[in-house]
């Protein structure tokens, strides 16, 4: 919790968020033969486990982690595209995870999502004009045609796409331009909260810079709050105000961006930061982790990171560490950090 959240109400609050996906579809798949007897067994993917965090207004909270850590699932839960198995999501003080589709509608105008792949997120059979007009019409039925057109043209200009191209189809644009159009579509309804799931991962370096600049501009001009999902730590350092590190659906560390990069505490955060190849590096110099990420189907008991952690002991293998507030304001879930075992 940052100091700001004590003064003002957070825009988004996740309380003990859980999401499990059942692997067995239907009754028959759950029936297994064990030791000569029929038993019922349910297997499920534990995608998100007891994640609690707040996002304040005007923040850019980054969620980082490797593939399979549940970062996209968290984004989809927040956007209401999936419903949680447990826990609560509060937006602007109101609980939203138990709302019906109709009750979610007014919120969708405030909350927009940008996806990773601009080749998949734009309908290939709709012109840019149609794709951009649709959300405006849907959320503002009182607007007349002229107003809708003006709104679309204004947003297109603000993302650097020439409004005279509006009758073209998505395939006529490059990846970077498509992502601008996807951002434009999110901005047409004047949202206050943007959920961006790896918005620049599919783009080239020089185009990444263009799109990141655009998102920073939109943040300043429109006072947007971002929930930014990425695996790229250099982008986090540049873009994020706070960072949440996920591992196997569990929150490892949550801290201000500067604190996290200057003084990472969780052994996984340290390994992750050291693994990023840097420009001035001469040869690899990373912390070697043992093994690879276990599957989220059968989560290890205790700390989810213990199978790869060099500091794991009996306690780590038995009980799951709780996120604890540190003196510098960061939150870390690690027995070794709690006991001060890492410093020795």
């Amino acid at each position: 919790m940052s100091t700001a959240s004590q003064q003002t109400k957070p825009l988004l609050e996740l309380k003990g968020l859980e999401k499990r996906f059942d692997l067995d579809k239907g009754f028959l798949e759950t029936v297994k033969l064990r030791g000569g007897r029929l038993t019922r067994e349910r297997r499920s993917v534990h995608a998100v486990n007891n994640v609690s965090l707040n996002v304040d207004r005007g923040e850019a909270l980054c969620i980082v982690g490797e593939s399979g850590c549940g970062k996209s699932t968290v984004a989809r839960l927040v956007a209401g595209l999936l419903s949680p198995t447990g826990g609560e999501i509060h937006y602007d003080g109101d609980r939203i995870d138990d709302r019906s589709r109709a009750a979610m509608m007014p919120l969708r105008k405030k909350m927009q999502m940008i996806f990773q792949n601009p080749y998949a997120s734009l309908n290939p059979r709709m012109t840019i004009q149609q794709a951009l007009e649709e959300p405006v019409r849907h959320h503002n039925p009182q607007m007349n045609r002229g107003e809708v057109r003006d709104k679309v043209a204004e947003v297109m200009r603000s993302v650097g796409v020439d409004p005279s191209w509006s009758s073209r189809y998505p395939h006529e644009f490059s990846g970077g331009q498509r992502q601008r159009i996807a951002i434009a579509r999110a901005l047409t309804v004047d949202p206050e909260f943007i959920i961006a799931d790896e918005p620049i991962s599919a783009l080239d370096v020089s185009i990444q810079a263009q799109v990141l600049n655009l998102m920073l501009e939109a943040k300043d001009e429109r006072g947007l709050t971002y929930f930014f999902i990425t695996h790229d730590l250099s982008v986090v350092e540049h873009f994020g105000t706070r960072v949440a590190v996920l591992y196997l659906g569990t929150l490892c560390e949550l801290a201000d961006t500067r604190t996290l990069f200057e003084n990472p505490k969780h052994p996984y955060t340290k390994a992750l930061l050291s693994a990023v190849p840097k420009l001035k590096d001469e040869g690899p110099s990373h912390i070697r982790l043992q093994g690879e990420i276990p599957t989220p189907i059968n989560l290890p008991q205790g700390c989810p990171f213990q199978t790869r952690c060099a500091f794991a002991n009996a306690r780590c293998r038995e009980s799951r560490p709780r996120p604890l507030l540190q003196t510098d304001g960061s939150t870390v879930a690690c027995h070794a950090v709690e006991e001060g075992r890492l410093d020795g």
Partner: peptide
């Protein structure tokens, strides 16, 4: 254009 070449929060050189 790399983010680490610019101070955090500043415009990237695109």
């Amino acid at each position: 254009a790399l983010p680490q070449q610019t101070l955090p929060g500043q415009r990237l050189k695109q």
